[in-house]
Every structure is written in structure tokens, then in C-alpha cells.
């Protein structure tokens, strides 16, 4: 273990919690991450180590930097100080490294970001064909399997505009899964959905969790968090305030900010 890795551990001690149930290699290592939007210090000394197979749910008030943190992991955002290592690849301005990481990290967005000019199936096959150079036939088989996995195989030929919000988000999950990622990032995946459609998306995510996917989820779905998370993280003002195993986190929050936050969202 290098000196910097040790410093991550000693600073946060995050790796210790819930680590028994997961394998012990780090999928993601974030150390001393600092980011500014203009003069606004959005991420402040964030340290986080995510183990393979670990499922982390990040919550916190809006503007706390949780989405930004997630987006640093596949470098949709860059940063001014600190390091992010994903699957053994340290991210830098080097485009090759960024693309390498992005191939292994799937992302699901709040607004789905499906490609409206392509059918659900074509949305799913685009990256396997053009990034992984997979033959079309094989990519389509894979896409149909992933669409079946999120339980909408019958919607393959439809365009995004013809689907409900919940179906669109499940296509987005299938699209990310078609790249056979090692890590999945979810940025408030149910926040833009009608209440009746939240469950169908969460069900797909639970199934994914049960299959052992490494997941980082920014969400306020506390039921989901209790069900699948190994670790809960509360962020506020660009920093990790509290990280703990879910039962403890909900039952005995330590930090005042956590208590306040939980009292606001749990009634």
C-alpha cells in the first residue's frame, strides 16, 4: 500500500465499514478531491474508496456536490486538485485514459439522456458497435438481453418519445449495461419520474445490486438505500459529512447535519 493510499484510509476510515461483505480490491479511489465552479468551492477535500461489489448511496441537500462528485468519476467534470483512480486507471486530461475509464463505467442520468433519433434498441447497440467494435448482430442480441433484464424487451423498436418516463429510464439503464461496465453510476435516477414509475426503475436497480454490480447512487430513495446499500454517505457543502453502514446511519446518525437532514426527509 502506498503512502497516499494509507493517508486516504487514515483520513476517512471509510474502507472499514461494510467491507466484510465485499471483495477487498478498490474499484474507485478518490483522494483530496477539490473542485471549484468559478469561485464556488463545490468539492472540498473529498476522500472516498469504493470496493468492488460495494453499493453506496449518496444523499444530501441540493448543491452539496453529490452529483458533481459522481460526475468526476467518469470525468464529465474535471477538477483542480486531487486524484481519482478508477479500476486502476488514474484519470487525467489524457483523452485515452478518460475513454478507457468511460468504457468501464456506466452512467444513468436524472434526465435519461437517451438519443431521441434512435430506437431503444439502437440506443443500446450504439456504443457496443462503435466503441467496442462488436458485430451488429451480437450487439443486438446483447441489447435485447439487457432490455429483458430491465423488463421491457417488447419496447425495443420504439423511439424514446413513445415511452413513459420509467420505461425511458430503464432503457437508459439497459444502454449503460450493454457496455458491460464494472461500475454503475446513478445520478438521481428517479427524481424526474412520476411517482407511479419510480418503483419499476428501483426494481431494476435492486436486481442489478443483487447481481453484484458496483454501484454509486445519488438518490433520496431511502427505502431503496436501506434495501441495497452497503454504505450511506451524507454530503453537505462539498464534503462528506458522515458515512456509515445503513442501519447505523438511519438509526444512530452521529453528526448534527445528518440528524437534521434525516429529520427533514424522513417523516
Amino acid at each position: 500500500m502506498t503512502a497516499s493510499e494509507q493517508s486516504i484510509r487514515s483520513k476517512t476510515a471509510l474502507g472499514a465499514t461494510a467491507a466484510d461483505s465485499v471483495r477487498t480490491e478498490a474499484a474507485i479511489e478518490i483522494a483530496g478531491l477539490n473542485k471549484w465552479f468559478g469561485s464556488f468551492h463545490v468539492l472540498r477535500d473529498v476522500d472516498l474508496r469504493v470496493m468492488r461489489g460495494e453499493r453506496i448511496v449518496i444523499c444530501g441537500p441540493s448543491g452539496s456536490g453529490k452529483s458533481t462528485l459522481l460526475r468526476c468519476i467518469n470525468r464529465l467534470e474535471d477538477w483542480q486538485r486531487g486524484r481519482v483512480v478508477v479500476d486502476g486507471v488514474e484519470l487525467s486530461a489524457d483523452v485515452k485514459r478518460i475513454d478507457k475509464v468511460r468504457r468501464e463505467v456506466g452512467m444513468v442520468f436524472q434526465q435519461f439522456n437517451l438519443f431521441p433519433h434512435l430506437t431503444a434498441l439502437d440506443n443500446c447497440t450504439l456504443a457496443p458497435i462503435w466503441v467496442r467494435n462488436m458485430p451488429r448482430k451480437e450487439a443486438e442480441d446483447l441489447a435485447r438481453r439487457q432490455l429483458a433484464r430491465v423488463r421491457i424487451p417488447e419496447q425495443a423498436e420504439k423511439y424514446p418519445a413513445q415511452l413513459s418516463g420509467g420505461q425511458q429510464q430503464r432503457v437508459a439503464i439497459a444502454r449503460a449495461l450493454c457496455m458491460q461496465p464494472k461500475i454503475m453510476l446513478f445520478d438521481e435516477p428517479t427524481s424526474a419520474l412520476d411517482p407511479e414509475m419510480v418503483k419499476e426503475v428501483l426494481d431494476s436497480m435492486v436486481a442489478l445490486a443483487l447481481d453484484g454490480m458496483t454501484m454509486l447512487v445519488v438518490s433520496h430513495e431511502m427505502g431503496f438505500a436501506r434495501e441495497v446499500a452497503n454504505r450511506m454517505i451524507l454530503m453537505d457543502a462539498g464534503q462528506i459529512i458522515e458515512a456509515n453502514e445503513p442501519n447505523e446511519f438511519f438509526a444512530h446518525p452521529q453528526h448534527e447535519r445528518t440528524k437534521l437532514f434525516l429529520s427533514q426527509i424522513l417523516r
Binding site: 483523452v95 439522456n113 444502454r175
Partner: peptide
């Protein structure tokens, strides 16, 4: 979001 969706899938600039 369209750019981000494409980038997150690992599509480079030209693709």
C-alpha cells in the same frame, strides 16, 4: 445531456 450521455458511453468526439 445528449453530449454527456454520449461521452459517458465512451464515444469520442468524432463518434
Amino acid at each position: 445531456g445528449q453530449f454527456e450521455g454520449a461521452m459517458a458511453l465512451g464515444l469520442g468526439y468524432w463518434r
